[in-house]
Structure formats: structure tokens, C-alpha cells
Design a protein around this nucleic acid. Structure first.
Length: 649
RNA sequence: GCUGAAGUAGCUUAGUGGUAGAGCAGCUGAUUCGUAAUCAGCAGGUCGAGGGUUCAACUCCCUCCUUCAGCUCCA
């Protein structure tokens, strides 16, 4: 019998008979590994544990702790769910059912609409099926065999998928588990018994192949875990995320609200939210001032011709508010969907020299976009929002440095806000010529510049083809909110198209006219979305420099109102955002109330404090810090505010 | 825009065809209090809007609006 040599991640190796399954190898190492292993990585390729090894290989066993192990686990659970659905709804047809970042889904076509109760039924059936502990059995077959199989089964979606697979470049396989068979490239768990704790989470519609012209299938989301504790923790995290929801906190903390009397997707900033927003704006203004930006202000509407010139109008006709027509019908104005054309007019307002560049115009410009009703979501997806916009006009030879400077600014801003984790995406064009304006050669150049800048600034990024703006490639910065949804915040975009369309020029040292390059950039993206994400990031517990109310002064009883008031006024004189709580309530009540409002400091004053002319300091979530003279407290808190100390939780 | 779910007081919510109930918040009064809820009282609702069925509709049916979970979209 031939022997093969198997090498493990720790470098050790062992010989086995050729054809030994990965599972047997795991068993030979330890029963526990055989129990926990979900799949195996052979020379970097993930395979079933059943798979026999026919040659020397580097082998790594994947458990639930590995990202890819989880993926296999959830993928198999989605198959198990399909099995359960088929048992309950024999007429069901299946679309696709992949693992996702957390959990899995399956798109199904069933005649009746599923309800929450049906989910419980399916969940119950799944548990039943796990007890059968059926093996996942792989079978490779030809394209025509596979098509014949699924035609017979009536799974026309699978047939459609198969018909588009090139069998020369890809193996076609099916997996059978009990009496359920699905088209799948695998790999899968050894058997359904590995799936222990299952929770089906939600149902929603989803278009077949993501095309809104296609039939809408029902998508069932779920998640599963090998240990009960993991499921409990997951569900608890969901609860925690709900508490952090910026829509709830926005209301509780009186930051903003959205009134139907004003309109959907048109958020209104309450006094406390406005303080937060203005603090962020002022912070960015200062950072920009240091970096040579010049503030400008432009109107909220503009002649429609601006947008016809820019090329935005035909591209985005459907997602802007309809034009305002003047009496003679000849002139039309648009609520501005972006600020760039206005800023270009400022550039054009006088002749420019190469010595003037780079020019950096900055504006917190409010823009209006008619987003689809189903898209609106709290502050993160709205119809009116302020972009922390800047348009920078640079010479080609300045471009890369300027992009690097912008990346540096965004890094500074994100780190100040305590976003330790964010992802960076380079959004490039794809082959769809109609989607983009401008010259392909210029695009290539711009994409190259962006990549070089990203490398120089040590960004870790991935390239997303087809995600570019119509006028140029961009770098997008995204962070995740409390519910794990990704949001695009900051963006840097290179634009060779608009300068052409608006005929932007400068006079070079050679006396000739040259075309500047435009950089569009916004570190926050939009104030609305940024603050929405920030609220969830901090769970409403803002660092002192951002907190709308920084300190609450609380007298023990009505007898100390005068002293309390003098403390409060001292704070106000030093520009500390303080509130004075003179309500006729017990101290415990008021402390609870301000704790719930997540106010960083409470100053409690009673007989002792009045006598010693000091304050008793209580910090949010930390409790009583003891007494401090008022001037020491103010000095401390001023330093903390000035240094913008950011604590993340 | 599409699919599904939901809409009762400022907030959280009870109420399956027979006069809408509570807690918190608010207001008034009492209490003058030492680190997460003092007591009592008062007020607050065309039950999302419109139409229909019925002797009678928060409740059943239809249409619309809004919100939520996704999908599609996102300058």
C-alpha cells in the first residue's frame, strides 16, 4: 500500500496510507479534534472531512473557531434548512443558500407566504433532522446529468444556475443528506448531527439573482452554533445592538427626530444634537484650516443647467427631487443633489495660475436626494444631509501627494473618533461602458494614482470593480454599526471628467492653459450618517468633548439651590455645557435620571459641599469619585475637553 | 419602488365585535431628603387616515399613509 506524508500547521508530519480520509487522520491525532473538526484545508483548498487524501499534503483541520470552519457550518445549516422546508412544503423550489458573515440564508419559492410561526415549524423540523445525523454525501457529475436531475426535481432555479456554468472550468457536484439533494460545490460538514443550536431569524423578499425585474423569492435568514452558550451570546449581542440603535438613542437623548409633518427622510436636529454636530463640524474645520482648506458657502439650489453640464442630471434623474420651474417655464432649478458644480463656479470666477494650486474649497453643504421610500433609515439613509465636502483643484504633479494628504486627514479624524476598525475599498470601474463618463485612459491613470496613494499611506484595502462613481474612481472608508451593517463614511474621489465638462483651466508656467484634476472628498461622508454611526459606536455615551451635556449640577435638597446655582454659573462661565437640576426630587432619582441620559459628570452639592465650597463628583457609570474643589474640577474637565480624550467601549 | 410585518397618550405597552387600561415622562401638592425610581392627586387617546360590513368596529374587510426587516438602489 502506498504511503503519503501529511504535514500539519505546527510543522510536524506523519505518514498515512494513500486514500485515508481526513476524518481518520483527525481521529489519529485526537478524538477531540475528530469531534470538533468541521472541514479540512488541504494545501489551501477547503474540502469535506470525508475526502480521501491521495497525495502528500499540508493539512489543517477547521473548527468553528476558524472563519472558514464557521462558513462550512452555516452553509451546511442552510442546506439542512432547505431539507426541512422541502419536508414541510414539498412544492418548494430553491434559489441560492449561502453562508454569510454571520449565519446563512436560503432563497425559496413557496406558494404561501411564510410567517414567524412557520419559522418555528421549520426550526423544529431542522432539529428533528439533526437527530437523524445524516451524512453529507458528495457526488460529482456532468453538467447534463445535473441538469437532468434538477429538471426532474422541478428545481428550475438550479437548472438556470447550471445552464450558465462552464463545466470545463468548474466541477459540478451535488450533495445528498438524508432524502434531500442540492446542487452545491461544497464543502460540507460530515453529517447533520454536528449542527446543534439553530435560530431562524427573519424572512424577507429578495429578487431572484438580485434583479428587480425577476420574481421575488422568500429569503429566510438564520444562524447556528455548536454550543448553546454561543447562541445565547449571539442573541444577547442582538439585544445589545438594539439598545444602541441610534434611532432609539436619538429620541431618548433628544438629539434629533424625524417628523412626518416635515417629511420622510428629513431629519431635524434638536438642541442637544445640534451641539454634537457643531462640535464635530468645528473640530473638522480646525483640522482643515491647518491643512490649507478655505471655507466657502453656496446656495441650496442651483440652475438645472449646472447639473446638465456636470452630467449628473441624466445619470441620477430618478433620484433627485423634481425641478422647481419658474413662471415662464424656461428656467428650472434643482435642490442641489451635490455641491461640486457650485464649487466649480467659484473656481471659474476668476483666472487661475499654476501658482494658486492646489485650491481647496470646503463647505458643510446640505444636499437633497430623493431616495426610494424603502431605503430610508434613521440618520444613516436620508433625503437631506450635510456633506463635509471639499473640492480640491490640483495639478497632475500634485495629485498623489494631495490624495495622500486627504487619506492622512481621514485617518486622523477616524482615530480621534475612536474608530479602530474600518475597511477601505478602492472603487474602480468595470467593463460596463455606459455607466461611466470620460476617457478610459484617464480612468486608468486615476485608478493607478489612487492605488499608489493607498499603498504609500499603508492602507489595507480591497478593490471593488464596478463601484466607482460615474466620473471617477474612489477610495471609500466604511465602518460597521451596532447591528453589523456596513456604512460608507469617508470618501476620496478623483475626477478627470468634471474639469473637462466645466472647462476648468489654469495658466501654467509655460503660459499655456492646462486642466486641473479635481479631488472630491468627505471624511465624515455626511454629518447625518456619521453621527448615526457615532451614536451606536459610543452607545450614546459620548466622550466629554462631544457630550451635549457635560455636567449636571444636582443639589441634595431645595436648601442648597443657591449654592448649586453658583456652581452651575461658574461652569457656564468657563464654557462647560452644564445643566442645573433644581427639580424637587430626591438625590437618587436625579442621579438615576442623569445616568440614563448618559451625562459624563454629576456634581452633587449639599451641606458638606456648601460648607467646604467644593463639589462631590460622580462620573457616569463609574460612580462617586469623592469631593474636589470646584476650581480643581473645572481645571480637570477643561483639560479633558481640550485634549478631546476619547474612550471607547 | 418590491416582499413581508407592524402602527393604541411624548415613550413602553394591555386590550379577539359591546363605554379604551396601565407604567414611565408631564403638571399640582406634600416631603427637604447624601450617590440609580418619595408619596398623593390631576391631566393626557377622533386606537395612523379614509371607506365598507354590523344594532354596535381599536377589533372583521378594502384602499391609502407611515415605520420596521430585507431586496433593489445609493453622486
Amino acid at each position: 500500500m502506498d504511503k503519503i506524508k501529511i504535514t500539519f500547521p505546527d510543522g510536524s508530519s506523519k505518514e498515512f496510507e494513500k486514500g485515508t480520509s481526513a476524518y481518520k487522520i483527525a481521529e489519529s491525532i485526537s478524538p477531540r479534534l475528530a469531534e470538533e473538526a468541521l472541514a479540512v484545508e488541504m494545501n489551501g483548498i477547503i474540502k469535506d472531512l470525508h475526502a480521501p487524501l491521495s497525495a502528500n499534503a499540508i493539512v489543517k483541520f477547521l473548527t468553528f473557531d476558524d472563519e472558514h470552519g464557521k462558513e462550512v457550518y452555516w452553509h451546511s445549516t442552510s442546506h439542512l434548512m432547505a431539507h426541512a422546508i422541502q419536508e414541510i412544503y414539498p412544492e418548494a423550489k430553491f434559489g441560492v443558500g449561502p453562508a454569510i458573515e454571520t449565519g446563512f440564508y436560503y432563497d425559496v419559492d413557496i406558494n404561501s407566504n411564510l410567517t414567524e410561526d412557520d419559522l418555528k415549524k421549520i426550526e423544529g423540523k431542522m432539529s428533528e433532522l439533526t437527530k437523524e445525523n445524516n451524512s453529507f454525501v458528495r457526488q460529482d457529475l456532468s453538467k447534463s446529468e445535473a441538469i437532468k436531475f434538477f429538471e426532474k426535481k422541478g428545481d428550475n432555479y438550479k437548472v438556470e444556475i447550471l445552464s450558465e456554468i462552464d463545466e470545463n472550468s468548474e466541477d459540478i457536484s451535488i450533495y445528498k443528506e438524508g432524502n434531500f439533494t442540492d446542487l452545491c460545490r461544497g464543502p460540507h460538514l460530515p453529517s447533520t448531527g454536528k449542527i446543534k443550536y439553530i435560530k431562524l431569524l427573519s424572512i424577507s423578499g429578495s429578487y431572484w439573482r438580485g434583479d428587480e425585474h425577476n420574481k421575488q423569492l422568500q429569503r429566510i435568514y438564520g444562524v447556528s452554533f455548536p454550543k448553546k452558550k454561543m447562541l445565547d451570546e449571539y442573541l444577547q449581542r442582538l439585544e445589545e445592538a438594539k439598545k444602541r440603535d441610534h434611532r432609539k438613542l436619538g429620541r431618548d437623548l433628544e438629539l434629533f427626530f424625524i417628523s412626518q409633518s416635515i417629511g420622510s427622510g428629513l431629519p431635524v436636529w434638536l438642541p442637544r444634537g445640534t451641539i454634537l454636530r457643531e462640535t464635530l463640524e468645528n473640530y473638522l474645520r480646525e483640522e482643515q484650516r491647518k491643512r490649507g482648506y478655505e471655507p466657502v458657502i453656496t446656495p441650496h439650489i442651483g440652475n438645472i443647467n449646472l447639473y446638465k453640464t456636470s452630467g449628473h442630471y441624466p445619470y441620477y434623474k430618478d433620484s433627485q427631487f423634481p425641478p422647481i420651474k419658474l413662471d415662464d417655464g424656461k428656467e428650472e432649478y434643482l435642490l442641489k443633489p451635490m455641491n461640486c458644480p457650485h464649487h466649480f463656479q467659484i473656481y471659474l470666477s476668476k483666472p487661475r495660475s499654476y501658482r494658486d494650486l492646489p485650491i481647496r474649497y470646503a463647505e458643510f453643504g446640505t444636499v437633497y436626494r430623493y431616495e426610494q421610500s424603502g431605503e430610508l433609515n434613521g440618520l444613516t439613509r436620508v433625503r437631506s444631509f450635510a456633506v463635509d465636502d471639499s473640492h480640491m483643484f490640483v495639478r497632475q504633479d500634485q495629485l498623489k501627494d494631495e490624495v495622500c494628504n486627504v487619506i492622512e486627514l481621514i485617518q486622523v479624524v477616524f482615530s480621534q473618533m475612536g474608530f479602530k476598525e474600518f475597511t477601505t475599498q478602492l472603487s474602480f470601474r468595470d467593463d460596463n461602458v455606459d455607466k461611466y463618463g470620460g476617457d478610459v485612459a484617464l480612468w486608468e491613470k486615476a485608478q493607478q494614482e489612487i492605488k499608489e496613494a493607498a499603498d504609500k499611506m499603508n492602507l489595507t484595502y480591497y478593490v471593488a470593480e464596478g463601484e466607482a462613481a460615474f466620473y471617477g474612481p474612489k477610495i471609500d472608508f466604511m465602518v460597521k454599526d451596532a447591528l453589523g451593517r456596513k456604512w460608507q463614511l469617508g470618501t476620496v474621489q478623483i475626477d478627470y471628467v468634471m474639469p473637462e465638462r466645466f472647462n476648468l483651466e489654469y495658466t501654467g508656467s509655460d503660459g499655456q492653459k492646462h486642466r486641473p484634476v479635481v479631488i472630491h472628498r468627505a471624511p465624515f461622508g455626511s454629518l447625518e450618517r456619521f453621527i448615526g454611526v457615532l451614536i451606536e459606536h459610543y452607545a450614546g455615551e459620548f466622550p466629554l468633548w462631544l457630550a451635549p451635556v457635560q455636567a449636571a449640577v444636582i443639589p441634595i435638597s431645595q436648601n442648597y439651590i443657591d449654592y448649586g446655582k453658583s456652581v452651575y454659573e461658574s461652569l457656564k462661565r468657563r464654557n462647560i455645557r452644564a445643566e442645573f437640576d433644581e427639580r424637587n426630587e430626591k438625590i437618587g432619582y436625579k442621579i438615576r435620571d442623569w445616568e440614563n441620559h448618559k451625562v459624563p459628570y454629576m456634581l452633587i452639592v449639599g451641606e458638606k459641599e456648601q460648607a467646604a465650597q467644593n463639589v462631590s463628583v460622580r462620573q457616569h457609570k463609574k460612580g462617586d469619585l469623592g469631593s474636589l474643589s470646584l476650581s480643581d474640577f473645572i481645571d480637570n474637565i477643561e483639560t479633558e475637553i481640550k485634549n478631546k480624550i476619547t474612550t471607547t467601549n
